[in-house]
């Protein structure tokens, strides 16, 4: 157990192991994404109320789910880096922020595209959309703070604190935005609330959610590898890598 943790703290080992994970995870992810998209777009029945436009949930919902989970991944990595001073956790946190921000943006964008045929407008201040927008701001805050620091080690610690603060705040923000929405809008436009989803539509959705988790992991690992190379640019193992490949 301890030797594993010790190895986890070693950049060359992490670089090597992430490389071998990516070698099979990346094709698998792409396969699952392709399968999920084809299944969702071509082989599921149209919704009785929204017709074909609902199919965007196969992108929208997984992106939103993984974006929210990604924040917790980032905050957990931040907590580990603060408590146990593991530099690799720092790298993971730094790598998670832009991926999470991109997924949040994807969820917002697909939500807007979906909103046009459904609500007749690209943007409504719906509770979920507003919450996602705030999540995007929280992610961007972490990214911006990291970039502002010149000392990247301090940047990692500062972002870890910020993401932990965000973690405490996210449930409060979500609840208060939910409540705010119920106060200002009668619950008339509610599509996803109590409507049940047919299994024929659900299974591709579950597949897509899994594929998005895998995609998140792939992007995280790729980002981490790039960050590792940058941080360790002056060490022997990176030079050796640059000279002769793996």
């Amino acid at each position: 157990m301890w030797s594993f943790l010790h190895k986890l703290g070693s950049p060359p080992w992490l670089y090597a192991i992430s490389g071998s994970i990516l070698r099979w995870l990346l094709p698998l992810t792409l396969l699952a994404l392709a399968a999920g998209v084809v299944w969702g777009l071509l082989f599921t029945p149209p919704d009785f109320r929204q017709g074909n436009s609902y199919r965007i949930i196969y992108i929208h919902v997984p992106a939103a789910v993984v974006a929210l989970a990604g924040y917790y991944v980032m905050a957990t990595a931040g907590a580990i880096s603060l408590i146990w001073r593991m530099k690799m956790a720092d790298v993971a946190m730094k790598a998670a922020a832009p991926v999470g921000a991109a997924l949040t943006f994807a969820a917002l964008f697909t939500g807007a595209v979906w909103g046009k045929p459904t609500w007749g407008t690209y943007w409504v201040w719906d509770a979920r959309i507003t919450s996602m927008l705030l999540l995007l701001f929280l992610y961007l805050g972490v990214v911006v703070l990291y970039e502002a620091y010149e000392n990247k080690e301090a940047a990692g610690k500062a972002c870890a604190v910020l993401s932990l603060v965000g973690t405490v705040n996210i449930p409060i923000i979500y609840k208060s935005v939910d409540w705010w929405y119920s106060l200002h809008q009668p619950a008339s436009i509610k599509f996803t609330g109590d409507s049940t989803i047919d299994p024929s539509m659900l299974y591709p959705l579950l597949l897509m959610i899994c594929a998005f988790y895998a995609l998140f992991t792939c992007c995280l690992l790729l980002n981490m590898r790039a960050e590792l190379l940058q941080r360790e640019a002056r060490t022997g193992w990176v030079r050796k890598l640059a000279r002769g490949g793996e």
């Binding site: 929280l138 703070l145 603060v165 208060s176």
Partner: peptide, 23 residues
């Protein structure tokens, strides 16, 4: 506290803190 060491903290602090002010 997170931006005090940065030269251009003024704008940054808004970006960090405003989402947290929402509730």
């Amino acid at each position: 506290s997170l931006t005090v060491g940065l030269r251009r903290g003024g704008m940054l602090i808004s970006l960090l803190v405003l989402p947290l002010y929402v509730p």
